[in-house]
Design a protein around this nucleic acid. Sequence first.
DNA 1: AGTCAAAATGGTTGCGCTATCATTTTATCT
DNA 2: AGATAAAATGATAGCGCAACCATTTTGACT
Lengths: 333, 333
Amino acid sequence: MNKKPNLKDVAKVAGVSAITVSRVLSNPDKVSEKLRTKVEQAVHEIGYIRNHAASALASRRSGVIAVIIPSLSNIVFNDVLQGIYSAVKQHHLQVVLGDCHYSPLEEEKLIATLLSQSPEGFILTGTDQTDYARKLLQQSGIPIVQLMELSDCPIDMNIGFSHFNAGVDITNHLLQKGYRKLGFLGARMDTRTQQRLAGFKKAIADFKQPCQSYVVTTTQSSSIRLGGQLLQAVMAESQGQCDAVFCCNDDLALGALFETKRMNLKVPADIAICGFNDLEASALVEPAITSVASPRYEMGQQAVELLMTASGKDKTHKPPIDVGYRIVERAST
Amino acid sequence: MNKKPNLKDVAKVAGVSAITVSRVLSNPDKVSEKLRTKVEQAVHEIGYIRNHAASALASRRSGVIAVIIPSLSNIVFNDVLQGIYSAVKQHHLQVVLGDCHYSPLEEEKLIATLLSQSPEGFILTGTDQTDYARKLLQQSGIPIVQLMELSDCPIDMNIGFSHFNAGVDITNHLLQKGYRKLGFLGARMDTRTQQRLAGFKKAIADFKQPCQSYVVTTTQSSSIRLGGQLLQAVMAESQGQCDAVFCCNDDLALGALFETKRMNLKVPADIAICGFNDLEASALVEPAITSVASPRYEMGQQAVELLMTASGKDKTHKPPIDVGYRIVERAST
DNA sequence: AGTCAAAATGGTTGCGCTATCATTTTATCT
DNA sequence: AGATAAAATGATAGCGCAACCATTTTGACT
């Protein structure tokens, strides 16, 4: 096996200079058609593939976007990722993805690692970075987008929606429907879940009539199965009084719904259920589950677009972009 | 904003040579503790981050693993990815991920792009690559793993299981249970789905007693909703005769199950349902769905380990690794 | 103290490519 | 045809780092 062909090898085969080959690859318009064809043939013939490291070093453009999400297994981030990938493709960039497992410390390490790739943009989830991480990011001068939630003091750009407001709204939805013994089921308890819980509490505190609340949370990661366990827990804690539950996401809500069948509870007659994120299954189970929808795919896309337009070094402060959310009312409430 | 600090800047601050700084970063054991501490402080102080492109160019080690999956949205590949990421972390590597949308041509382009990163290993899904893609991969000399299914002529290494056998087994399971009018619901119809269908047909052809089969497929991508539609379709085609369906994955199976409720069909009395992939929801719905489980996470992990041990240039042909599968029998059949 | 091996540190060079500038060729006009 | 601009091509240098080899320092032993 010969060693990998380089620019010079292509140049020799095509009978041109190395720099011309380089141009064919990055600025085809600047080369006459005759030479371009010759070079392209040579490239294909010897299976030449440009050395990205050398190219990035010489050109100071890595063609890479760094992305950190808190969890690969959570389908919510998957949707965002798909949006990111779809947008990145247009710009001929590569994504380097990190999973920080909801840990700011792990995120800090990841940020350092990913910065070494000299990414042309950085997409972070949430606004909960360590100080050192923020320092590194700021010093890098790279455009940065923080996704999913809104921040008063974003590192650079910010796009998301208010999980607090969504929590308030969905809780009010339950209250308006006449439910008065509300449970909150929370897993993981990351910052966004905490904000939803804060919204839940706020809505109840502000409500003019007497009502009860039962909060059951765990730091375990979310799953359908866990939803069933948490429903059991909230029913135990409320001694069977609880008549509606706000689940911090749709996985829990689905699990809670499945559990009601085993407990012989009617939804929504005996107990109402609402979730968060509006997964496909929530609309198709029986009864369908009320949930909170947000434009995740579009958020991912828009994040990339923001990065691309921002590389123009305008250090003007950009206001956070609120993509909003929508309460999808269904039979479960 | 000053330009990014480099090795020399750190060296100046720490009062050592550049190469010593480099060693602290890559071979800390080779440096005395005194200097190491000084250098580490300097690195942290000025927020130095190594330039990956330069490092990769000089050392000829990119620290990157390339991965191509057919779909980001399919949770099945998500599991594999998680396994890959968990293993990659141990080895201090980065993943560069591509989504080829089930298209060999798109995959070919991705392979060329990702090869330019000089990855130290390449993980592909399936065995359906174009000739030129195979040429590029072979010529690169990089260790390669093809995942998910087994191949007679793998490019390099191969780990997966037989979707054909799984299709045969699950169909036989239905036949043994006494069902005789079997439907197959297929979406996407990628190679693995086709193999499952082939298994379905084989089992029916080999069965000693008379039985009927109804095959309904579409190239649309799979979803829960589609499962409901395909169930409608197979019931229409069989004029209500169909008494069991093998869904090519659990999304379809869930959708089919939800649809039976709307159609007032009892599962498994009126119709049996089985799926593929054993998603969490399948075990928790009522009735729980029979499915085929496979060690996806472990497959991902093992793929990375294979790549890492294989970089030793042993060009011996390695036999495919069959990780097997398991039929999980539940109430739906 | 003197010898030698081993460990620690440093200097030089080149990885493969592209930015920059210099040069040559081609096209356009009077 | 000659003058000028514009397009196409080429030569050189350097991006930031680590491999390689040279040198210095340290430690272990007689």
